[in-house]
Design a protein around this nucleic acid. Structure first.
Lengths: 116, 116
DNA sequence: TCCTATACATAAGCATATTATGTATACGAA
DNA sequence: TTCGTATACATAATATGCTTATGTATAGGA
């Protein structure tokens, strides 16, 4: 098994937003979901996860309530607000723009390369 | 014109390595090349550029010499070492793995990945 | 009884980005 | 000739946010 990729700063937010886009989840479940959805490529550390959730809530993108999990434990459940839903869209588009820009640069043929 | 995308931490190194893959360049030219190759999506700030160049040189990926530009100015030219060449390959593959993992999570087909 | 998974939280450390500031020169326009 | 702009380097202060380490607490199985 290849070790998990360290998260690039700034990419966690959109992962969390996406994890919450279908249904409310608590922090630990968000972490698990991201790990599984990425085929173990991403392993979200608690030290990144919980501050990020609070950050996004402070920004108005999430709302949280304490509730009981199906295994009978107390946990803080987060759900996307309307603003968070819009943010998921714009953050996703922003990521895609970034990927496209990287592809333009990295896909650029070297001018020193010989051509026919 | 849309404003330049803020650089995600960790992605500058591979951009610089690629900028130097065809021929040696000095810092300012690296910055200009990245801006143009990305169609103005990336604008590398000096405060990020020069420390990054020294960092990569300290890591053994680059070597530098002072020389004169074609406009008659003194500038520090950087070239890729053999180790830097290998690093370009592995860093590019690492970026591609990251993009693919993000695509798996965000649930859309990979928008096109770059090769070294 | 003890280990593991679950569930939260925060502090310390670290890497690296942005912003601001400084020096200096070449070159064209006013 | 002067002045603004592009070129060319460099560093300090600041901000962000990720990793690592540490702590608390409970549920459930071996």
């Amino acid at each position: 098994m290849s070790p998990p990729l360290p998260l690039l700063q700034g990419t966690l937010d959109v992962l969390i937003l996406h994890a919450l886009s279908d249904e409310p989840r608590h922090g630990y479940a968000v972490s698990r979901w991201i790990r599984q959805a990425s085929s173990d490529a991403f392993q979200v550390e608690e030290g990144a996860l919980y501050p990020a959730l609070r950050r996004l809530e402070a920004r108005g993108w999430l709302e949280s309530t304490w509730a009981t999990t199906d295994t009978g434990r107390e946990a803080r459940f987060y759900r996307l607000t309307d603003e968070g839903e819009r943010a998921l869209g714009s953050e996703t588009r922003s990521w895609n723009r970034y990927v496209e820009a990287m592809a333009r640069v990295l896909g650029r043929p070297s001018p020193g390369t010989a051509r026919p």
